[in-house]
């Protein structure tokens, strides 16, 4: 498994938010993490990234134990992060935001990888623009480009289409598909849009109250399951 969690419980302060999570994602696969608002999808991604107060259980990245690694070490171990709300640094230029990702690289290259500019021509043409001046869709492109600059093996995408214009959503979806199918990145994707999850993912998990309640191949995500666990 490229990413695996064994009996992981994760806390904010002293309160357990995720409990007894077991999951694995094979190399090159895309796992969709589904569930209603507030069930722990973002906490799962933040736990993998090491951004919760503490966790118990075991986490491994590319076969290596990463349970006790700090956030910056997990990033250097090959986990790229596209957070909810995009998390771009608004005072930085587009160039500086992408270069930020290169601090996680083992090869110490402080140059923007060609793939980032090739995937997002708008960013390539506006490298000196202040990131805070970009539209929501452009900021999402920047967030993806920054994660790619880390030279990741695994990409964590937390609601990448949230708050994006519908025509841009298709572009983002196509980019994610390309990263998975052509570049071969392993993906963990939290998503509210079931259609997008079905199109992109190989497997799915459904979460409820901090636990995984259903998991399986994406073909087994039936309308009945959606009705039971995901419809508001």
């Amino acid at each position: 498994m490229q990413l695996s969690l064994e009996d992981v419980t994760s806390y904010y302060g002293k309160t357990p938010i995720l409990q007894n999570i077991d999951l694995g994602v094979a190399e090159g696969h895309c796992l969709a993490v589904l569930g209603r608002n507030g069930v722990g999808k973002t906490t799962l991604v933040r736990t993998i990234m090491g951004l919760t107060t503490r966790m118990t259980g075991r986490l491994s990245i590319a076969g290596e134990d990463a349970t006790h690694k700090e956030t910056h070490e997990r990033s250097s171990a090959g986990v790229g992060f596209i957070p909810q709300g995009r998390g771009i640094l608004p005072k930085f230029s587009v160039r500086e935001n992408i270069l930020l990702g290169t601090f996680a690289r083992h090869d110490q290259k402080r140059a923007i990888p060609d793939m980032c500019l090739e995937l997002f021509p708008y960013l390539a043409e506006n490298l000196d623009k202040r990131a805070g001046q970009l539209s929501g869709g452009q900021q999402q492109q920047l967030s993806i480009a920054r994660a790619l600059a880390t030279d990741p093996k695994i990409l964590l995408l937390d609601e990448p289409t949230e708050g994006i214009q519908p025509n841009i959503v298709q572009e983002i979806e196509a980019t994610i598909h390309r990263l998975n199918q052509e570049v071969g990145l392993t993906l963990v994707l939290t998503e509210q849009h079931i259609k997008i999850a079905r199109e992109l993912a190989h497997e799915f998990v459904i979460m409820d109250r901090g636990r995984i309640v259903v998991q399986g191949p994406i073909a087994e995500l039936t309308d009945e399951l959606v009705e039971e666990h995901l419809t508001i």
Partner: peptide, 24 residues
């Protein structure tokens, strides 16, 4: 400098800086 970009990143968003390999 590279140290400067790291300092300014931590100033803006410590979590994001850590998520991109910066040891805050």
């Amino acid at each position: 400098t590279n140290m400067g970009i790291q300092i300014r990143a931590v100033m803006q968003n410590k979590e994001m800086a850590a998520s991109f390999g910066i040891n805050s």
